[in-house]
Simulated assay, not measured.
Amino acid sequence: MLYVCDENFKRLGIIGSFSYLLWRKRYTSHGEAELHVDVSMKNIELLQKGNILFRKDDNEAMYIYYRGFTEDNSGNDQLVIKCFTVVRWFDRRILWEKYNFQDTPDNIIRHMVFFTCLNPTDKRRVIPGLNFPYKPILEEVIQFQISYANLLEQIESLCNTYELGIKSVFDGKNLSFDLYKGTDRTINQSMNPRCILSKNFSNVLSRNYEEADNDFKNTVLVAGAGEDAARKLASIEQGSGLSRRELFVDARDLSATKKVGEEEVPISDEEYTLLLKQRGLEKLLEYEEFISFDCEIDVTKDNTKYGRDFFLGDIITIRDDTLGVIMNSRIVEADEIYRNSVKSLVVKVGKSVPTLPEKVKRMVKS
């Protein structure tokens, strides 16, 4: 059952039946949904662009951005609705000036939202009804400079770089946003209940594994402010010989000054080097080795239940003896699919991540 409300969270009605629903949630970025329902005046009136869909058994809300009409295999008219999670509302704002942050990545995200959506100088930019409570997550402080960029893109970039999850939390009346870290449920730890997905344990129906390194880079030279021999440079370097894969990043947009009060003052060489390395790290993460493992989970089995034993963003163990694959990986995407009331679940995991926090810290500071 799906509930519908308007942009002001006023309850409008219920969608009690549908032929197809895809409810896709992502860890570090916004999710999406697709709904197919019979064409009726009720459905047409309820499912207007901008209206919000939510479920009692899920705390993320989706807003409608697309409507279309088609025929199913039996020739029946269907109304097709496409949605994004309301996290994508942040795509409607840009950073209107230059900001220099020296803070944790999660606090930097909160500051950006505060300055652009919650308490901007121009009150016309306020997005009403938003709440972003403070909840400290990370401890490492970074140097970060950004100006005149899309807010959502910067949020998702920081979430990807520092393995942070972002989601909307909607209870049918109130909306807030939450940053969070998934739980380590791998076989290597003993603090939390373990989660192992494997055909051997009869909780995986099918799987698809891919890996590629055609775009992989592990060394970056970043060039910032200045000209010719005076240009400021920083690098992150790994590997040698054929294992070394180099990338150049032009970061001339990173200013060598910052505003203190009403005055522009020079940024110290140490701070500016950290800014350049932060930019380099973000770019390197765009060129990581590609490893993907999609698993269709058997929702009828009680030994490993999504939403009870493991959640989006958790790090779990994947084991496939046929492929010779054992990997500890984060669940980065979860698709709940309903076809004529029959549910299936497909989860996607990223590359192996147990040492990523240490890797990020080492690369930025090296």
Rank of each mutant, 00 (worst) to 15 (best):
residue 56 K to G: 13
residue 198 S to A: 15
residue 169 V to R: 01
residue 130 L to A: 07
residue 48 Q to L: 13
residue 6 D to W: 13
residue 121 T to R: 14
residue 95 L to H: 08
residue 147 S to T: 00
residue 94 I to E: 14
residue 241 G to W: 07
residue 123 K to N: 13
residue 148 Y to E: 08
residue 142 I to T: 08
residue 159 C to K: 14
residue 136 P to H: 00
residue 345 L to F: 09
residue 173 K to V: 15
residue 41 M to V: 12
residue 56 K to V: 13
residue 42 K to N: 11
residue 39 V to L: 14
residue 233 L to C: 06
residue 332 V to E: 11
residue 28 T to G: 04
residue 205 L to V: 08
residue 349 V to H: 03
residue 358 E to K: 07
residue 86 V to G: 01
residue 181 K to W: 00
residue 139 E to G: 11
residue 55 R to D: 01
residue 106 D to I: 04
residue 243 S to A: 09
residue 308 R to G: 07
residue 345 L to S: 02
residue 81 I to R: 01
residue 334 A to P: 01
residue 28 T to D: 00
residue 146 I to C: 04
residue 179 L to H: 09
residue 162 Y to V: 13
residue 165 G to K: 12
residue 345 L to A: 03
residue 235 S to P: 06
residue 227 E to A: 09
residue 295 C to L: 12
residue 289 E to Q: 10
residue 238 Q to K: 10
residue 54 F to K: 07
residue 267 I to V: 02
residue 315 I to W: 03
residue 341 S to V: 14
residue 341 S to D: 03
residue 276 L to A: 03
residue 60 E to K: 11
residue 71 E to F: 13
residue 200 N to T: 11
residue 16 G to W: 09
residue 141 V to K: 15
residue 59 N to F: 04
residue 237 E to Q: 10
residue 322 T to K: 03
residue 90 F to V: 03
residue 281 L to R: 04
residue 307 G to L: 02
residue 227 E to Y: 08
residue 18 F to T: 07
residue 273 T to K: 01
residue 274 L to S: 12
residue 104 T to M: 04
residue 234 A to H: 02
residue 337 I to R: 15
residue 272 Y to F: 08
residue 78 Q to P: 03
residue 205 L to C: 02
residue 210 E to M: 12
residue 41 M to E: 11
residue 315 I to V: 14
residue 274 L to V: 02
residue 293 F to C: 11
residue 29 S to I: 00
residue 236 I to S: 08
residue 197 L to R: 05
residue 34 E to C: 10
residue 105 P to S: 06
residue 81 I to W: 09
residue 353 V to L: 09
residue 309 D to N: 12
residue 212 A to G: 14
residue 343 K to S: 05
residue 292 S to I: 04
residue 5 C to P: 02
residue 274 L to A: 12
residue 291 I to T: 11
residue 291 I to Q: 13
residue 245 R to H: 10
residue 356 L to H: 05
residue 210 E to F: 15
residue 203 N to H: 01
residue 42 K to H: 10
residue 224 G to Y: 02
residue 283 K to H: 07
residue 262 E to R: 13
residue 72 D to T: 08
residue 337 I to E: 14
residue 244 R to C: 06
residue 251 A to G: 09
residue 340 N to Y: 09
residue 64 I to Q: 00
residue 21 L to E: 07
residue 115 F to M: 11
residue 188 N to S: 15
residue 49 K to Q: 13
residue 180 Y to S: 10
residue 295 C to Y: 08
residue 312 L to P: 01
residue 95 L to S: 06
residue 312 L to E: 02
residue 315 I to T: 13
residue 259 K to M: 03
